[in-house]
Amino acid sequence: MDLKAEQRGDLLIVTAMGDRIDAAGAIQFKDRMREITEAPTRRVLLDLSRVSFLDSSGLGAVVAVMKALGPDRKLELAGLTPTVQKVFRLTRMDSVFTIHPAVPDRGQPGLRDAG
């Protein structure tokens, strides 16, 4: 699973480039996220718009990433595709994360001031 990171102020936007976060890739995803989020931004936004499938191992990895960020940093999600959204809803994890419909455009005030 390739991840691409872009820093905008105190927001780090990480884009998952692969189409699935599953049992075969969950550990690698978690490790790559840990490396990328070493940049000390207050908020991390994970763009999942290219991910068409996430299983319970993938979900566990996303939860683990959020916990590893510690209490002072937030993990937010954007661009959940229908099947991924279903997994979050069924496990009630949609109430745990802030979920954006899409990655906001550069310079959008809502994004800069949110949090």
Binding site: S56, S57, G60, V63, K67, P71, V87, L90, V96
Partner: peptide, 14 residues
């Protein structure tokens, strides 16, 4: 609480 959230065990529920 956030630190107590499970990282597994979702499979059979789904």
């Amino acid at each position: 609480a956030r630190e107590d959230l499970p990282e597994g065990g979702f499979g059979w529920h789904m």
